[in-house]
Design a binder for these strands. Structure first.
Lengths: 141, 141
DNA sequence: TTTGTCTAGTTGCTTTTTGCAACCAGTCAA
DNA sequence: TTGACTGGTTGCAAAAAGCAACTAGACAAA
């Protein structure tokens, strides 16, 4: 890991997800229920497989997610968010909120974001709890 | 402007600030009171001048900031956040909050973030109001 | 009016990262 | 045993970033 440019909190965060792909991968796992390499590879933005490999490794190293073997299919890896990863939810929500106000976002996505934002803390908390449950399960393997 | 990879709100936002430098520039203007090219160039992370030129142009094109001539020194350009830029404050705050919890952040910066986060909405609102005032001033030139 | 300094950049070059397509070995189900 | 699916790897071309040197215009002092 190359040394930090600075210890500013914004810079520290950007060293984890300051690129075009990392937050999209986290989004896939956090909101879209994707857990496997090929599922993430298949999302709309068409990430290349070598980049995905690289980012998943980095996210694992940073402790944002953990990689475990699928119980049923031994060749399948399951990627699960850690608490550090789950804690990015407020950041993701606010980014999405900003986008729906200021950028071109599809009607379907606006509704989805509104559910989470306006639908309030309750829905977000439920989602966070579900993700934490999942983490607990893969942790005791 | 090359076409979007997708209309997902997260992706739309990343097309604006999904890189190592853009959010640091916004931070400099938003929280550190920097307004001139050379001021931003001088921050801790040592951005290269050609990259800074490029990002300032892009941010202007995206409508995140406006560029005006300094009243006193005609060769100086003043970079001011637009409302679209100011609206990124909640995102910045949550990123900083996440970093202070999960990443290596200097004691000084932690205090600074805590003021804004724990110090609550009031301080943030005041800062936002001040930035909006500034925008109003440069707008009527 | 010259000299030096400060301004916002630009230019040319090297290194790093990304993007793309083809490929591969192991797993599994029929 | 075949064929499709799994998580990747490899090699090459293109784009972006990094670095250092440079420039033209504004200004202030001598």
């Amino acid at each position: 890991m190359k040394k930090s440019k600075s210890h500013c909190p914004i810079n520290q965060a950007l060293e984890v997800f300051g690129d075009k792909w990392t937050l999209l991968i986290i989004r896939d796992i956090m909101f879209d229920g994707k857990r496997y390499f090929r599922e993430i590879l298949g999302s709309d933005e068409k990430i290349a497989s070598n980049i995905l490999t690289d980012r998943l490794h980095k996210l694992e190293t940073f402790g944002i997610l953990v990689k475990t073997k699928d119980a049923d299919h031994k060749q399948k890896n399951v990627y699960t968010l850690t608490e550090k990863g789950i804690d990015l939810m407020p950041v993701m929500i606010h980014i999405a909120e900003w986008s729906t106000k200021h950028r071109e976002v599809s009607e379907k996505d606006i509704i989805h974001v509104n559910e989470l934002v306006m639908g309030g803390r309750k829905l977000q908390d439920e989602l966070q709890e579900a993700l934490k449950e999942e983490l607990k399960k893969v942790s005791k393997q």
